[in-house]
């Protein structure tokens, strides 16, 4: 049977046919533009939405202006305190596993004494994240709030 010419021809054709697919793929890669797909955050889990109590306490006279914000949203600002040494707000936070950086900026008169501001963020569980900053005249500081208190934010 192996001596039959038509069988030998069929055998060779089948081998060529089988090899043609991988050879075609190797020598004709898909064009780059065709492979481009829109970037989408597939593996990033949706951030947890949580209500957190935020409190800013000034050790001395409150600043002439201040602002506590996360990227794209102000949480607390000067109008919320009106001469008091403590300002509070509820922050409906979207906390990804990486955490959120809060920026605190405040200004006092140029001749003001050195003073301190404490920022405290309280979770519904009763756990808190807080930091105290010292400055004279102006303050610009960062407080990182992790997805769950007690954990370091993951990069």
């Amino acid at each position: 049977m192996r001596g039959q010419p038509w069988l030998r021809l069929l055998f060779v054709v089948l081998i060529f046919a089988a090899l043609s697919v991988p050879v075609w793929r190797l020598t004709h890669p898909a064009p780059i533009a065709a492979a481009a797909t829109p970037v989408a955050a597939e593996s990033t889990p949706a951030p947890t939405t949580i209500s957190l109590e935020v409190e800013v306490t000034f050790a001395g006279p409150p600043p002439t202006s201040f602002q506590l914000k996360e990227p794209g949203q102000t949480i607390l600002q000067s109008g919320d305190v009106s001469g008091e040494t403590t300002a509070r707000a509820t922050w409906h936070a979207h906390l990804p596993k990486e955490g959120v950086d809060l920026t605190f900026e405040a200004h006092w008169p140029d001749d003001a004494e050195q003073t301190a501001a404490r920022i405290r963020v309280s979770f519904p569980t009763g756990q808190t994240v807080e930091k105290t900053f010292w400055a004279r005249g102006a303050m610009a500081e960062i407080l990182t709030v992790p997805a769950s208190p007690g954990e370091s934010p993951s990069p």
């Binding site: 990033t44 951030p47 996360e70 990227p71 794209g72 990804p96 596993k97 990486e98 955490g99 959120v100 950086d101 809060l102 920026t103 610009a140 960062i142 990182t144 934010p153 990069p155």
Partner: peptide, 16 residues
């Protein structure tokens, strides 16, 4: 260092 920390804080941590 402080200037850089403030600039980086403009970027949500999940986008870093």
């Amino acid at each position: 260092d402080k200037e850089i920390k403030l600039k980086v804080a403009e970027l949500p941590r999940e986008k870093r």
